[in-house]
Simulated assay, not measured.
Amino acid sequence: MSHKTLLRTGPLSRGGVSPYGPVREPGTDGLSLPEGFGGRVVARSGSKVAALTWHAAPDGGACFPDGDGWIYVSNSELPLLGGAAAIRFRPDGSVADAYRILSGTELNRAGGATPWHTWLSCELGHRGRVFECDPYGARAARPRLAMGRFKHEAAACDPDRQVVYLTEGERDGCFYRFRPYDWGDLTEGTLEVLCSSGRWEQVPWPAALLKGTRHQVREARRFDGGDACHYAGGVCYFTTRGDGALWAYDAQTSAVERICDGVRAVTAAPSGDLFVSMTTTRIDVITPDREIVPFLRLDGHPGAELTGPAFAPGGDRLYFSARRGAAEGHTFEVTGPFRR
């Protein structure tokens, strides 16, 4: 199924029948899931995962293949002590290892995975940076300063056009794309900003000290606090924290559509379904038929934000975190008959 179906067939409808069936009463760890699905907590802030103490304020995340197993990477949105960590899973789903992949950074809120299996961890602070990290823990993380110095939120790679889309966590923030000179090497390239006309214009000074990137191109289009983003099937989906909206940018036509409200984070399943973390403690599904239906509810975590949704490479496990404040955080795994 094509993800572009979501962009081109009219408004969303709510209240339809979920392809997974109704959400049941809460079970273990407060998870309410459809029949046939189960869940567990794989990490708690301040507790050990393997030999690693899991970080507070877990945020953006992604999964990577690792032989017959896989790895889940998670950012930490702590000031001064942010960074990112990884959990390595064996083929049977048991935890094999956990380790840091980025330290010495702060407010690492969201990010994004690359097609060459690295993790882009984004700093939300003033003049924040993008760090390219090795989820396998073999190589040191490196800043990619050509991608700009601003309040970075998330990154999403478009392998078809060989660009990386970037969101900005400002009330008058912009939507950017980075065009590396060599795809697969983010050391050098051109930073561009989306304008109200639908055109992309080059940002003259991506690392300027005095004039922010969002103020350098007069025609730049503004969004209310850019947040998470995910690319799939020719469309970059991104959210805006200020108004809680989910947007879709069609990379072929440069059209931007506001899909729905009340969304914090987004990821895609192999089926073409979008899984969206809502501003309440639940995850909904947006089907390729443009129906939005409930999938998961988390009880017992009042006021928590559900962050970092990501599917394991096999498409049969969904990971996300529930964070509340700067200390409490739980990272969950959901298994079951996800559509393919």
Rank of each mutant, 00 (worst) to 15 (best):
Gly212Pro: 11
Gly169Val: 15
Phe37Thr: 09
Phe238Arg: 08
Asp182Val: 15
Gly15Ser: 03
Gly30Pro: 02
Gly226Asp: 07
Ala62Gly: 11
Arg340Ser: 15
Cys63Gly: 13
Gly93Ala: 02
Glu106Asp: 08
Phe238Val: 08
Phe295Gly: 10
Arg149Ala: 15
Thr213Glu: 00
Leu145Gly: 06
Leu298Lys: 02
Ile71Asp: 06
Gly244Asn: 06
Ala322Ser: 11
Cys122Pro: 08
Glu333Thr: 09
Val41Tyr: 03
Arg290Gln: 03
Ala85His: 03
Pro91Ile: 12
Ser94Gln: 11
Leu81Gly: 04
Asp172Cys: 08
Val263Gly: 02
Trp70Asn: 12
Glu305Pro: 07
Gly27Glu: 07
Phe332Ser: 05
Ser2Asp: 15
Ser47Leu: 13
Asp29Arg: 06
Tyr20Pro: 11
Arg129Ser: 14
Cys133Arg: 03
Gly104Glu: 05
Glu77Leu: 08
Ser121Trp: 00
Leu298Gly: 01
Pro206Lys: 05
Ile87Trp: 01
Ala269Leu: 10
Arg340Pro: 11
Leu31Phe: 09
Gly104Thr: 08
Gly233Arg: 04
Asp289Gln: 13
Ala51Arg: 07
Arg144Leu: 11
Ala84Phe: 01
Arg324Trp: 10
His117Tyr: 08
Leu120Phe: 05
Glu153Cys: 15
Val334Ala: 07
Asp224Gln: 13
Gly212Ser: 10
Ser32Trp: 13
Asn108Ser: 14
Leu31Trp: 01
His55Ser: 15
Gly39Phe: 09
Val193Tyr: 00
Asp243Thr: 15
Arg127Glu: 11
Gly212Trp: 04
Pro337Leu: 04
Arg177Ala: 08
Pro159Leu: 01
Arg199Glu: 00
His230Asn: 09
